[in-house]
Amino acid sequence: GRDIVGDLGAYDLFITPTLTQLPRPLGYYDMSETDIDRYNAKWTDAVFAFPFNISGQPAISLPLGWSKDGVPIGVQLVGRYGDEATVLAASAQLEQEMPWRGRRPAVSG
Rank of each mutant, 00 (worst) to 15 (best):
D35E: 08
D35N: 14
D35M: 08
D35Q: 11
D35C: 04
I36N: 03
I36C: 01
I36V: 07
I36H: 04
I36S: 04
D37Y: 02
D37H: 10
D37E: 09
D37V: 11
D37M: 11
R38Q: 09
Y39T: 00
Y39D: 01
Y39Q: 02
N40K: 14
N40T: 04
N40H: 13
N40M: 12
N40S: 07
N40L: 13
N40W: 08
N40Y: 09
A41Q: 06
A41L: 05
A41T: 00
A41R: 05
A41V: 01
K42T: 08
K42C: 10
W43G: 08
W43P: 02
W43S: 12
W43R: 05
T44F: 08
T44E: 15
T44P: 11
D45C: 11
D45T: 13
D45S: 06
D45H: 08
D45Y: 01
D45P: 00
D45N: 13
A46V: 14
A46I: 09
V47N: 14
V47I: 12
V47E: 14
F48I: 06
F48A: 05
F48G: 11
F48C: 06
F48T: 05
F48Y: 15
A49H: 10
A49I: 10
A49D: 11
A49G: 12
A49Q: 14
F50E: 12
F50M: 03
F50K: 13
P51Q: 11
P51F: 05
P51H: 10
F52C: 02
F52W: 12
F52V: 02
F52K: 02
N53H: 09
N53K: 07
N53V: 13
I54W: 11
I54D: 10
I54N: 12
I54G: 01
S55M: 12
S55G: 13
G56A: 13
G56C: 01
Q57M: 13
Q57C: 14
Q57N: 15
Q57W: 02
Q57G: 06
P58K: 00
P58N: 01
P58T: 04
P58A: 03
A59T: 06
A59P: 00
A59E: 01
A59C: 04
I60P: 00
I60K: 05
I60T: 02
S61L: 04
S61E: 00
S61D: 02
L62F: 10
L62Q: 06
L62R: 10
P63H: 06
P63S: 07
L64F: 02
L64I: 08
L64P: 01
G65D: 01
G65W: 00
G65P: 00
G65L: 02
W66L: 11
W66K: 10
W66I: 11
S67M: 09
K68E: 14
K68R: 09
K68W: 08
